[in-house]
Design a binder for these strands. Structure first.
Length: 576
DNA sequence: GCCGTTTTCGGCCCGACTGTTTTCAGTCG
C-alpha cells in the first residue's frame, strides 16, 4: 500500500463517518491522519517498520494500529463496516458543490439515492419534489453542480490557473472604489495545484464591488453574491472552469483578512489556537480580546504574527509543517531574484522550438549570467535525441554561439537518458567533452521502488552526471510519480556532489516540495530549471522557486544561485 | 480520535451566504 492509498482510506472513513453523523472531532482526527500520511516525503511503511507511527502529528494509538493493520493486510475492518452501513457510491455525491454529508444522508435515507446517476434521474423525474429542505433553488443548484462536477477535473495546475488569476486581479483593481487587491489562498502559497482562486480587496462599498465582480464578462455562473463576498465560476479554456471567490474588507482589517484567506486551513487553526491560549480570538477582521473586546492587531499580517510572538511567516511556509515553531525567520529563504542561470533547456537540435541563439537571447533578457544547452540523448527517439555524431557537431555549434556571447556564459551539455540498468545513454568519452550533464529517466518508470532507486543512484555515481532532472517523472494530474527512496537518493547525491532538480515546469514541479525538503535536510544541493523547450517557458521559474520556498530552501541550497565560476567548480570537483 | 505552559479528562477555530424549516441548519473556506 502506498502513502496515497493509506491516506485515501482514512479520508473515506472520515467521509463515511460524516454521512453517518458521527462526532465532528473524531471525523477531523481521521482527516488529520489522512493529510499527514498524504504529505509524507517517505514511505509510511518504513516508519511503521521502525515502530514510529505514533510520532507522526495527529497519529495516536488507535490510528497507528489502523495504519499498521492496513499496511500488513491491505484491509481495515472499520472501513469495511462503514462501507456496509451505507453504499460507497455516496462518496461521489460529496463532490457536488453545495452538497455535504447531511444532505447526502437525507437523499439516501428518504429517497434511496446512492449515486450521481441516481440523483440525476431523481431530479429529472421530479422525485425530490416536496422533500423537506430541498426547494426549487436547491434542486436547480444540484443539477448544475452535477454538470460542474463532470466538467471540472479536480484541482488545477498552478501554471494553468495563474494567467486567469492575474487577469482577474487586474480587472478587480480597475473597479470603482477598489483601493487594493491581492491574491490569497493556495495560489499565494505556491501550491502545485489550486482548488479555486481567492482574491481579497479593500473597498468601502462591498456590495457594489461584489456586484461588479459577478458581472465580469468571463463569469459563467454566479454561486453567491453578498455584501462582503462573491463566488463565481470562470472559464479556463477547453471547457474547464474554476471557482473564484472575492472578499471585500475595510482597510483596517486587511492584514487579518489576508492572513485568514491565505491559509492554509491547518496553519490558521494552529494560529487561532495560539490566540485562544492568550485569551484572544482571531478571525478575518482582527486579532482581538475575546467577547468583543478591544482589537489587538488587524492592519497588517506582520502585526498579527508579532502579537502572537511569531516572526512574519512567508505564505509558502504556511502549511503547519513546523513553521510555527520557528523562533526566527529563515535567513536567506530563496527568492526569484537569487536565480542566476539555468542548466537544463532544449533547442531545435532535439525537441525545442527555438535555436541556440534564440534561447541564449531569451536567457540574456531575463538577466541570467549563464545557461547550459542540454538537448536529448539518442534513446529519446521521439524527442529527436542526438546520436553521438550529431552531438559532436552540436557541441561545436553551441561553443560557437558561446564564443560570440558577451557577458553571459554559454555551456554545452546534454540531457542524457538513464537506461533501464542505470547506465547512461552516451559513453564516458563523449560525456567528458560536455561542460555539464543532466541525467533523467524517460521510460520504464513502472518498476518497483528498489529498482527505481538503484537505477537513479547508479546514474548519480557517474562522475559526469551533475544533475538528476525531474527525479520522479511525475506529470501533475496525468502521471503519478515513480516511487523512489528519496532519502537514499539524497544521501548519495550529497555524498557525490550531484544536484537534484526541482523542475519548474508547472506540469512537473519535480522534486515536489516535501521531497526537496528531505533532500536539503540530508545535505543534497538542489538545482531549479525550467526544462525550457520554448523561450516562454523561462517564465515558469516562479513556480519552481515557490516550490523551493515550500521546501524551506535557502539561497545557498540551490546550485543556480551561484556564480558561473562556482558552478564550474561544482562540476570539476566531481570529475575524475 | 488526539492531546497537554488549564496534562490523562475535557476540550477541540471562526464567520459568510443560502434557502427556506420565519430563526437557523447546512455548506464552505
Amino acid at each position: 500500500m502506498t502513502n496515497a492509498d493509506v491516506a485515501r482510506v482514512f479520508r473515506e472513513i472520515a467521509d463515511l463517518l460524516e454521512i453517518g453523523g458521527d462526532s465532528g472531532f473524531r471525523i477531523n482526527s481521521y482527516r488529520r491522519v489522512a493529510r499527514t500520511i498524504g504529505d509524507l516525503p517517505n514511505e509510511v511503511a518504513d516508519i511503521a517498520a521502525r515502530g514510529e507511527l505514533g510520532k507522526l502529528p495527529g497519529v495516536g494509538k488507535a490510528s497507528a494500529e489502523k495504519i499498521a493493520t492496513l499496511l500488513e493486510t491491505g484491509r481495515l475492518s472499520l472501513r469495511e463496516e462503514l462501507g456496509k452501513k451505507v453504499p460507497e457510491s455516496l462518496l461521489e455525491l460529496l463532490g457536488i458543490p453545495g452538497m455535504g454529508p447531511k444532505k447526502v444522508a437525507l437523499l439516501y435515507h428518504e429517497r434511496g439515492i446512492e449515486s450521481l446517476d441516481a440523483l440525476s434521474r431523481a431530479i429529472a423525474s421530479n422525485q425530490l419534489d416536496g422533500m423537506k429542505g430541498f426547494g426549487a433553488k436547491s434542486i436547480a443548484a444540484m443539477r448544475e453542480g452535477i454538470e460542474f462536477l463532470k466538467r471540472s477535473a479536480g484541482r488545477t495546475r498552478i501554471g494553468a490557473a495563474w494567467p486567469t488569476a492575474e487577469l482577474l486581479r487586474a480587472c478587480v483593481a480597475e473597479m470603482p472604489g477598489v483601493q487594493r487587491v491581492e491574491h490569497a489562498g493556495s495560489l499565494r502559497r505556491g501550491r502545485e495545484t489550486v482548488g479555486d482562486l481567492d482574491l481579497l480587496c479593500v473597498g468601502a462599498d462591498g456590495r457594489g464591488i461584489v456586484q461588479c465582480f459577478t458581472e465580469y464578462p468571463g463569469v459563467s455562473r454566479v454561486l453567491a453574491s453578498g455584501g462582503t463576498k462573491g463566488s463565481v465560476l470562470v472559464g479556463l479554456g477547453q471547457g474547464r472552469e474554476i471557482q473564484v471567490d472575492l472578499r471585500v474588507v475595510p482597510a483596517e482589517s486587511f492584514g487579518a483578512a489576508w492572513q485568514y484567506f491565505t491559509g492554509s486551513k491547518e496553519h490558521n487553526v494552529r494560529l487561532r489556537e495560539r490566540a485562544v491560549k492568550r485569551g484572544w480570538t482571531l478571525n478575518e477582521y482582527a486579532l482581538s480580546e475575546a467577547d468583543g473586546g478591544k482589537v489587538i492587531a488587524s492592519k497588517t499580517e506582520e502585526e498579527i504574527y508579532a502579537a502572537l510572538d511569531l516572526p512574519w511567516i512567508v505564505p509558502e511556509l504556511r502549511e503547519d509543517r513546523g513553521e510555527l515553531d520557528l523562533r526566527e525567520p529563515i535567513d536567506d529563504l530563496l527568492t526569484l531574484e537569487d536565480i542566476r542561470g539555468e542548466l537544463h533547456m532544449h533547442t531545435t537540435a532535439s525537441d525545442g522550438k527555438h535555436t541556440i541563439e534564440q534561447m541564449v537571447q531569451a536567457a540574456r533578457e531575463r538577466g541570467y549570467k549563464y545557461v547550459c544547452i542540454t538537448d536529448h540523448s539518442q534513446s529519446s527517439v521521439i524527442a529527436n535525441g542526438l546520436k553521438p555524431s550529431r552531438l559532436l557537431r552540436h557541441i561545436e555549434a553551441v561553443r560557437k554561439v558561446g564564443s560570440e556571447s558577451r557577458g553571459m556564459k554559454v555551456w554545452v551539455g546534454a540531457e542524457v537518458d538513464i537506461l533501464a540498468d542505470g547506465s547512461l545513454d552516451y559513453e564516458d568519452e563523449l560525456l567528458a567533452q560536455l561542460d555539464f550533464v543532466v541525467a533523467s529517466v524517460h521510460f520504464g518508470m513502472g518498476k518497483d521502488i528498489e529498482h527505481n532507486t538503484q537505477r537513479t543512484i547508479a546514474a548519480i555515481r557517474s562522475p559526469y552526471v551533475n544533475v538528476i532532472a525531474h527525479p520522479t517523472g511525475r506529470l501533475i494530474n496525468k502521471r503519478d510519480a515513480m516511487p523512489i527512496d528519496i532519502e537514499a537518493i539524497a544521501k548519495e547525491a550529497a555524498r557525490t556532489g550531484t544536484a537534484l532538480e526541482i523542475n519548474a515546469s508547472s506540469y512537473r514541479l519535480d522534486l515536489r516540495d516535501q521531497h526537496a525538503r528531505v533532500a536539503r535536510d540530508l545535505g543534497a544541493t538542489l538545482c531549479i530549471n525550467c526544462d525550457a523547450h520554448h523561450r516562454e517557458h523561462f517564465k515558469q521559474m516562479r513556480f519552481g522557486v515557490q516550490t523551493a520556498r515550500r521546501a524551506w530552501l535557502r539561497k545557498q541550497d540551490v546550485l543556480n544561485t551561484r556564480g558561473a565560476a562556482e558552478v564550474a567548480e561544482f562540476v570539476r570537483a566531481k570529475r575524475p
